[in-house]
Design a protein around this nucleic acid. Structure first.
Lengths: 345, 345
DNA sequence: TTCAAGTGGGAAAGCGCATTCCCGTTGACA
DNA sequence: TGTCAACGGGAATGCGCTTTCCCACTTGAA
């Protein structure tokens, strides 16, 4: 990657390095117009592209914003990524991407890499966890973040603070009202459903999952309902599918219509997909609700009841965009939890 | 973003800058073990994080790979992004992201920004177009890419070469056999469907769309069928939805069962979504096929017939991963194009 | 014992740019 | 006409690191 340099431009234009620099960047000192013109011409003729690395080094600010996600192909994360990307664009920055498939130790490395590149800020999306196997990784991640912040970096975390992070300076978390919303969902569901509830959750220790479970149970309690049984599985479509398979028999042999709450949309889709070949129909034989309101899934039939989350805004907020409205979800009751007119099967 | 520097580490360890550098990076010259240990300790104590910008400047190679997509939240692109990300990870690089919503002038700017950051290579995903309004943007984009390549950059383009690009050095395009696959799809569909065909395409001039249309028509011709009518609309869900609305009446008033080919999956979903409230059922009243085989859409019902594309591999290939198999799609006939047992309505 | 080759650490020269001083000009005002 | 401020361009320094070149030293053979 060689290219023409500023000094070449300066030489061609017959001016000094300093002048050339002042012309070609938004310096506060504006050289005379004729000189400026000459410099611009020279730059143009040479096809000069400023070396952002060198600029960053000289003014110690890179114009980079790092984004850590579990999996960029997951619609949840790609929606957040879009928000971050937009914010970055507005701030005239570029986004650096890192996928980690959720392991804190990988996330730590990503943060270190961002720090090495002197990213102005870092956004961490994806659920935090307190699982035992993540303990060490979390500690290291927290240490890395602390160091990064102490050195003047800004970090935005989606959902929950990183376990063990102690800095407050430059560290902000975009709170997602998972618990409240899940509670709201439970209450709305309880209004029309009189049977039992069942929760299909992610692994224990995953904050996002745990919050939603807790909120849902609270909502049930508030509605005067007994707590729901909780099944733990993977926090993705495959997990939902598995749970659905395990559940099929039980639903078929029961006379009561079950209302299932899967802690996110893709899990709900997985459950539904597993149930279908078994002849279990939604919402006839059971009803189901998800969480997130993933855009790509909105055309799904039966339309999935869920909780809308402004994922793009969340990304924008985490990226430090000041004029993004605060996070506020909303329960969306759709077909998948409707009580059929012919009532219980 | 201040942090401890290499010279601080060197001073603490009581060695020279050169030695410290040699220890902390994979230099070919390995200092003695005891010294190395001292340096590592010092680095550790100071929480030293090498400044990648400075490193890049010094060795003129940034370890960055730039990715240009239309929209990172679009599942087509996010799947490719995942592939690129993986390749980057293997090569020990990081990916820089830019979303451009498809405008060549934006893409040009993204490329310039990547060039400024001295990215080692650039991947451009997303359909090229020859539409009149993109003419100038395309020319500029091509010029920017040429310059980038001449300066030693590598670029990988998904699908079609950038219009007007003349460099060959360091420039490679990942060919996607859209035409052949669309032709294959047409032939397979023609085997079971005897009615008319209709194509819902993107705007004229969009290579990907045009290729698929052409291929499909060829396939029909090969099967001895008349050419299909082509409706042009937006290359996204909204476009499909619009087309679906416009089509509903016609389908309802016709006795013949239409087979619709939407040039990508999300458009097909849009069509289906528009048709449903009108009482037009797939595959009873019409059949439909898409293209891409988007993962998130696989649980859709009726299961969408489509053409599978190894998007992740495509991303990996574009990012220059040598041991990724070549692109090879496959026709996937599913429920949405099945002929119901009770035949024509 | 001497000299050549080999070893390993340090000094210094950049990489490409921003920025701080410094100095020669110019214009206004007395 | 002389003085001073304001202005505008240039030389030089440094951002943090890699790498070349040099030098002091050790080793082995003559």
């Amino acid at each position: 990657m060689a290219a023409s340099t500023l000094s070449e431009v300066a030489r061609l234009a017959g001016v000094s390095l300093a002048t050339a620099s002042r012309v070609l960047n938004g310096s506060s000192r504006k050289p005379a117009e004729d000189i400026a013109e000459r410099v611009r011409e020279a730059a143009d003729k040479l096809g000069y592209v400023p070396n952002a690395q060198a600029q960053a080094l000289a003014k110690s600010s890179s114009g980079l914003i790092g984004l850590v996600v579990h999996d960029i192909a997951d619609p949840y994360f790609s929606a957040i990524a879009r928000g971050v990307q937009e914010a970055a664009r507005q701030q005239n920055r570029m986004v650096l991407l890192a996928s980690t498939s959720g392991a804190p130790s990988d996330e730590k490395e990503a943060v270190a890499a961002f720090a090495a590149r002197r990213a102005d800020s870092i956004v961490i999306a994806g659920s935090r966890s307190v699982r035992a196997e993540d303990k060490q990784g979390n500690t290291e991640l927290a240490a890395e973040l602390d160091r990064y912040c102490r050195n003047g970096g800004h970090v935005g975390v989606v959902g929950h603070p990183v376990v063990g992070a102690s800095t407050t300076e430059g560290y902000h978390v975009v709170k997602v009202p998972n618990e409240e919303l899940a509670s709201g969902l439970a209450m709305e569901l309880a209004a029309t459903h009189d049977g039992a509830f069942l929760i299909i959750a992610g692994p224990e220790g995953l904050y996002t999952s745990d919050d939603r479970v807790r909120g849902f149970q609270c909502g049930l309690a508030d509605a005067g309902r007994p707590a729901a049984e909780v099944i733990r599985t993977g926090f993705n479509r495959a997990g939902g599918y598995e749970a659905g398979q395990a559940l099929a028999e039980r639903i078929k042999s029961s006379t009561e219509r079950l209302c299932i709450f899967a802690v996110n949309d893709v899990m709900a889709i997985g459950v539904t997909a597993a149930l279908r070949p078994e002849g279990v129909w939604i919402p006839r034989d059971a009803t189901i609700a998800g969480f997130d309101d993933i855009e790509t899934l909105r055309d799904f039939r039966p339309a999935l009841s869920t909780v809308h989350l402004p994922l793009e805004d969340i990304g924008r907020l985490a990226a430090g965009d000041p004029d993004t409205p605060p996070v506020s979800g909303a329960v969306k009751l759709r077909r998948s939890t409707e009580t059929p007119v012919d009532s219980q099967v």
